[in-house]
Simulated assay, not measured.
Amino acid sequence: MTLPVILNFDQSVGEINDAKTIDFTQWQDVIRFGCNEKNFQKFKMQLQQSLPENYGTVLMGSGDYHHISLLLIEQLAKQYSADNPIEVIIFDNHPDNMRYLFGVHCGSWVSYVASLPFVSHVHVLGITSNDIGLWHFWENRWSPLFHKKLTYWSLDVNVSWAKKIGLNQAFRHFDSPDDLITQFLSEQYRNTKPIYLSIDKDVLSEEVIHTNWDQGKLQTYHLLDTISSIKPRIIGSDITGELSIWQPKSWFKRLLSSLDKQPEISLENLNGWQQEQYQLNLILLNALKA
């Protein structure tokens, strides 16, 4: 059995039995939210040296670290190729395919994944963010959408405009989370490609969990039903979306963080909400366990 790994940037995951914890707290301010390409490559080398040869689901802390999924997926280049490709399935309330001019950002990493030769397609499930609405479309990276490498599966956001520019297959809209998951799993039924699964818990409703970001509409059973259906094909996975309080040292990251309007978290709520997160992690890890 491959054991889970905790990349401990922000001390938000807590202790999990049998998990290997790697201390990356010294990287928190450098990597969190976004970083330049030079620092990202430096961290990549550190990560490669620190990961065990075989490991299970990786937990990374706050969704501010979701761009680390790119590095974990890149590791799979050793086993897969354009002739033997994988698909990447991401649960996220945001597309994570936005333009970022200063390196790699937790909201920009998906386009890099879509460009990997051994990744045939990327699906982002559960988006309710206006990042994919008409007034923010220019902020998205268009190439993977027009080249049919990326599909947004969305709720509660108007994407009807996409049909007018030939992107109706890339922008899928559904009336309910049940409809979205049912349709996705129906289309995956005969697919045999291996899958890398990435879960950002901000895709879940605030009725289920609280995260650092604005949240979607899915329930826990939507994640569990999907995992159950695709589990034989999962060759790697990660979980992010933990709750943590962070004050950036650099004025630039403070500015960017303020522009994204992350919700304020009171110390009074922090411990209780982190405990809810912890329990959900145990449920997800059990579902993903090989």
Rank of each mutant, 00 (worst) to 15 (best):
F184Y: 15
Y189S: 06
T128V: 13
K164N: 11
N158D: 15
S186K: 15
N191G: 02
I165R: 09
D179C: 07
W161F: 15
R172T: 01
P144S: 09
L180H: 10
I127F: 03
F171Y: 14
S160W: 05
N158G: 01
F146R: 11
H147Q: 15
T192Y: 02
S160D: 14
R190L: 13
L145W: 05
T192L: 05
V124W: 08
W142P: 11
Q188E: 14
S143A: 14
H136C: 07
Q183H: 12
N191F: 01
T128H: 06
Q188D: 10
N140D: 07
E187F: 03
P144I: 04
N168V: 03
G126D: 01
P177D: 06
T128Q: 11
Q188F: 08
L185D: 02
L150H: 01
I165Q: 02
H123E: 10
L134Q: 13
S160V: 08
W135A: 07
T182I: 09
D178F: 06
G166P: 00
L180E: 08
L125E: 03
K149E: 06
N140K: 12
L150V: 03
E139F: 03
Q183I: 03
S129A: 04
I181R: 11
L145E: 03
N130H: 13
V124C: 14
T182M: 08
L145Q: 11
A170T: 01
A170H: 01
T182K: 13
T151E: 14
T192E: 14
F184C: 07
S143Q: 14
D156P: 00
N191E: 14
I132Q: 07
V124Q: 05
Q183D: 11
L185I: 11
F174Y: 15
N130M: 10
D179W: 00
W142K: 15
G166L: 03
S129L: 04
I181C: 11
K148L: 00
L145D: 08
R190A: 11
F137R: 12
E139P: 00
H173T: 12
L150M: 07
Q169T: 15
K148H: 08
D175Q: 13
F184K: 10
I127M: 08
Q183R: 13
V124H: 03
V124A: 08
P177R: 07
A170N: 00
N191Q: 15
K163W: 05
I181G: 08
T128E: 14
N130I: 09
L145P: 08
L134D: 03
Q188C: 13
L150I: 09
K149C: 04
K149N: 04
G126V: 01
A162D: 01
D178H: 12
V159E: 02
S154N: 11
Y152T: 00
T182V: 09
F137T: 01
K164Q: 10
Y189C: 00
L167D: 04
D178S: 11
S129K: 01
H147I: 06
F137S: 09
D179I: 05
D156M: 02
N158F: 02
S160I: 07
L167C: 06
N168T: 08
D131G: 14
Y152V: 02
L180P: 10
E187T: 07
K149L: 01
L155F: 06
K163A: 15
W161E: 02
V157D: 02
S186I: 02
W135I: 11
R172P: 05
K164A: 13
H136T: 03
A162L: 01
K164C: 04
S186R: 09
S186P: 00
E139G: 03
H123R: 10
